[in-house]
Nucleic acid binder design. Sequence first.
DNA 1: TAACTTTACGGAACGACGTTCCGTAAAGCA
DNA 2: TGCTTTACGGAACGTCGTTCCGTAAAGTTA
Lengths: 199, 199
Amino acid sequence: MVGSPGEQPAVARSRQVGRPRRSEQALLEAAAAVFVRSGVDAPVREIAAKAGVGTGTIYRHFPTRPELVVAVYRHQVESCAEAGPRLLAESANPEAALRAWVDLFVDFLVTKHGLAGALQGDSAGSDALHTYFVDRLVPVCGLLLGAALESADTDPSVDAYNVLKAIGNLCIGAAGDARYEAAVLVQLLISGVLAGAAH
Amino acid sequence: MVGSPGEQPAVARSRQVGRPRRSEQALLEAAAAVFVRSGVDAPVREIAAKAGVGTGTIYRHFPTRPELVVAVYRHQVESCAEAGPRLLAESANPEAALRAWVDLFVDFLVTKHGLAGALQGDSAGSDALHTYFVDRLVPVCGLLLGAALESADTDPSVDAYNVLKAIGNLCIGAAGDARYEAAVLVQLLISGVLAGAAH
DNA sequence: TAACTTTACGGAACGACGTTCCGTAAAGCA
DNA sequence: TGCTTTACGGAACGTCGTTCCGTAAAGTTA
């Protein structure tokens, strides 16, 4: 290498030697399976065991636990985000679109045990999960919310970030508490938001 | 004692020998101070250190961490509970009473960093914190909610348990996120509940 | 006062967690 | 056939809640 003409930049040369990387896809599938069985808070060791892999391998692909969670649910978050504009176009009115989208989001959060709780992000500001959800979904929520508010001729009392975080919070602990009806409460919150009356 | 006439039941004889118990009050004050500085999630070791005590002593008085938290905030929960009927009597109308009480509760939860989050109770059904809050505050919430609904001539769409838990959830992560306005969101939820329209 | 008993004490120890680290062996290159 | 590079598994680390245990202080009895 020393004697060769240095055409190719050193940075482009990577992953040429050594074992092939275990496909991230296999890890993600194992993680998804464990999340279904044991919830999103399942230990990393359990995921590693399910994938037939050491914990180090998990961390080499996903440097931190939240990043693994993000990766597992990225597709579903994406499709939830994409559903927003579509619902707005297809629905009878903006409010119906907003309510349908919110139902979609709630169902997603409640189905994945513990996901809503994991959204908070620890004290540090660098929680990948929280950041990703906010970045991807706040604009969608804002689109639908803005349309619904305009259609209702109501001044906004809170912004899309607040609404999204509120929905996430309302879904915490919904699975595993049969008396708690997250979906209804979220719709009631939307009613309040569209009424524009914080009092 | 063996030769004495056995008037007093054996069960009444306790705490006669040995060191005096460290006053629980001192432990509670140390815990409260640490909770203010480091949040409700502060490690038990930190509380023990602040109280100048071993961790064992903490656990002898409060068998589990949530029970310590309950003990620390019992007074404030109590006064929040007592405020309910008083507000109902003093306010111009039931809705105003409900909204004032809810503000009280929200302020309480948001002020104590992490308390709202701790309310969830882990997967096991035996979380002292959750149980205590529910037992003490659901009836109060029910009283105010019932009066407000009746006054608004609205059919209830959710029960007091749902409303209380929803409020608790909405307050999660409120401290430490300046953009998130828990109090406003809670009032909007109340608006939706009193409107009786889950859609 | 001098044993003896009872009890709360402090802090080491345990198990579970997220995360980091390192010796090893497989895969490509010469 | 060796050498280099790399991902690998899993031991090790630091932190948490909780449990355990040897010790010493306080009360009781002689």
